[in-house]
Simulated assay, not measured.
Amino acid sequence: MLVKIISVGKLKEKYLKQGIEEYAKRLSRYTKFEVIEVKDEPTKENASEAEDELVKNAEGERILAKVKDDDYVYLLAINGKMMSSPELAKHMQQQMTQGKSTLVFIIGGSLGTSDAVYKRANQEISFGKMTLPHQLMRLVLTEQIYRSFRIQNNEPYHK
């Protein structure tokens, strides 16, 4: 089993890197885990809608280049399905039971993701209506993946 996070842009803040590294270490007893960063496109302050689409498409191509045909893809999207931690754990478990050996979580760029990435996604999920910085979202997502494995294994974890 492999769980991957594919995210646009480089993680810069040391404290976020340390948090992700800690959860990655904890996850190693349950699964292989990796974070893949794809290059973000420079964006203009007052870009047109067409220019924004070009940015999303370029980033989307980089994301999709890291996704295999048989991967199960979760796309983080503000209008996606909101799940509780136990619901996410159950959903992930179902995919593994159905033979999916790789679960991929995608965090798009600051403008969102391309239509092609939306079309490739098997499930759109949301962590709420609030906008979080993409770099912080990586840490939150990593913690939730770890929490999902704890739940799946009936192991205690603070509620």
Rank of each mutant, 00 (worst) to 15 (best):
K44Y: 05
Y30H: 02
E87G: 08
N122V: 03
R138W: 05
E41Q: 11
S114W: 08
Q135H: 12
Q152M: 15
T31W: 08
M92S: 01
D70P: 03
R147S: 01
G112N: 06
H134M: 07
G9F: 06
Q98R: 12
Y146D: 02
A116V: 04
L76E: 01
S7Q: 12
G9D: 08
A47L: 13
E53M: 12
L11P: 04
T31H: 08
R120L: 07
M92Q: 10
Q98L: 06
L76G: 04
N46L: 05
Y23M: 09
V117R: 00
N122S: 13
Q152F: 00
G99T: 06
P86V: 12
Y23W: 01
K81D: 09
K159F: 14
S110W: 10
G108Q: 02
Y157K: 07
P133V: 02
E21A: 13
L132T: 09
Y72H: 03
Y30V: 04
D71K: 00
L11K: 04
K12Y: 10
V140P: 11
I106G: 08
P86E: 09
S28K: 14
G60R: 04
K90W: 08
D52L: 15
V8G: 10
K44P: 05
R26I: 08
E41W: 02
R26H: 09
Y30E: 06
K17Q: 15
S126N: 07
S114N: 09
Q94D: 14
Q95R: 14
D52V: 15
G19Y: 03
N153H: 15
G19M: 06
E21K: 14
I106P: 03
M92H: 00
V3H: 10
D40P: 01
K10F: 09
M83R: 08
K81F: 03
R29G: 07
Q135E: 15
I63N: 01
V35H: 07
Q98C: 00
T102V: 13
A89F: 03
T131S: 13
Q123R: 14
Q144M: 10
E155W: 00
S84Q: 13
Q94Y: 00
M82V: 15
Q93E: 14
E87A: 14
N154Y: 13
G9K: 11
L88G: 10
S101M: 00
R150D: 05
V35D: 01
L141W: 07
P133Q: 14
E124Y: 10
E21Y: 05
V8L: 04
K81N: 00
Y72R: 05
D69T: 02
I63R: 02
L2T: 11
Y30W: 10
T113E: 11
S48T: 15
Y30A: 07
L54N: 12
Q123I: 03
F33Q: 06
E37K: 10
N154E: 14
A77I: 05
R29F: 01
S148Y: 05
V104S: 08
D52Y: 02
Q152N: 15
E13P: 08
T97I: 12
G60N: 11
N153S: 14
N46Q: 09
A58Q: 11
K17E: 15
Q95T: 01
V8R: 02
